[in-house]
C-alpha cells in the first residue's frame, strides 16, 4: 500500500516539476544536464524505495508507475485539453522567415539553438534559409527550410 502511494506521489511530483521547469530544461542535454538527470533519478529511486529493497517492492513500484503512465496516456487521449495542459503545445518561433524574438526570449531559445537544429536536421548554413522553426512540446526545435535553399 505504502509503495503504491509513494509511486503515485513521485510520478505526479515529477510530472509537475518538469512541466514547471519548462520545455527547454533538459531538451538539449549537455554532459552536465545528463549528470543532473542521473542525480535526479538516483534521488527519486531513494524516495521511492526508502529502506525496502525487496523484489516485491521493486515489482510493485514498476507496475504502479507503468499503470499510472498508461492511465495518464488514456486520459490525455480522451481529453485533448488535458494533454495540451500537461504536455504543452508547439510554438512557432520563426514564421515565414521572420524571427519572433519575444516568443524566443520567453521560451529561452536563441539564434544559435535554432541554427544548431537547422544544421543538424536540414544541413542549413544560415538563418535566411529557414522558413519555419517550431519549438516542439518536448523542447526540441524542428526546422522547415525555404524551398529555394
Amino acid at each position: 500500500m505504502d509503495s503504491v502511494i509513494r509511486g503515485v506521489i513521485v510520478y505526479f511530483f515529477l510530472l509537475l516539476i518538469f512541466r514547471i521547469s519548462g520545455k527547454r530544461t533538459l531538451s538539449e542535454a549537455t554532459v552536465f544536464d545528463f549528470v543532473l538527470l542521473l542525480i535526479i533519478s538516483e534521488t527519486t529511486q531513494q524516495a521511492l524505495l526508502a529502506d525496502d529493497y525487496s523484489i516485491t517492492n521493486g515489482f510493485l513500484l514498476i507496475t504502479t508507475l507503468l499503470i499510472v503512465d498508461v492511465g495518464m496516456s488514456l486520459f490525455k487521449q480522451r481529453f485533448t485539453a488535458v494533454e495540451k495542459i500537461l504536455d504543452g503545445v508547439p510554438l512557432i518561433i520563426i514564421d515565414n522567415g521572420k524571427m519572433l524574438k519575444e516568443r524566443m526570449k520567453k521560451s529561452r531559445v536563441n539564434e544559435s539553438d535554432i541554427m544548431e537544429s537547422a544544421r543538424e536536421l536540414q544541413g542549413l548554413e544560415n538563418l535566411d534559409q529557414i522558413k519555419y522553426a517550431i519549438l516542439e512540446k518536448d523542447g526540441k526545435i524542428t526546422i522547415i527550410p525555404k524551398e529555394n535553399k
Binding site: 514547471i20 495540451k84 504543452g88 512557432i92
Partner: peptide
C-alpha cells in the same frame, strides 16, 4: 500545427510562478 498561444501564454506565467 496545433498551436495555442493563449495556453502557451498561461503556461509561461504558471512556469514563472512555479520557479
Amino acid at each position: 500545427i496545433d498551436e495555442d498561444l493563449a495556453l502557451e501564454h498561461k503556461s509561461l506565467i504558471l512556469e514563472r510562478i512555479g520557479w
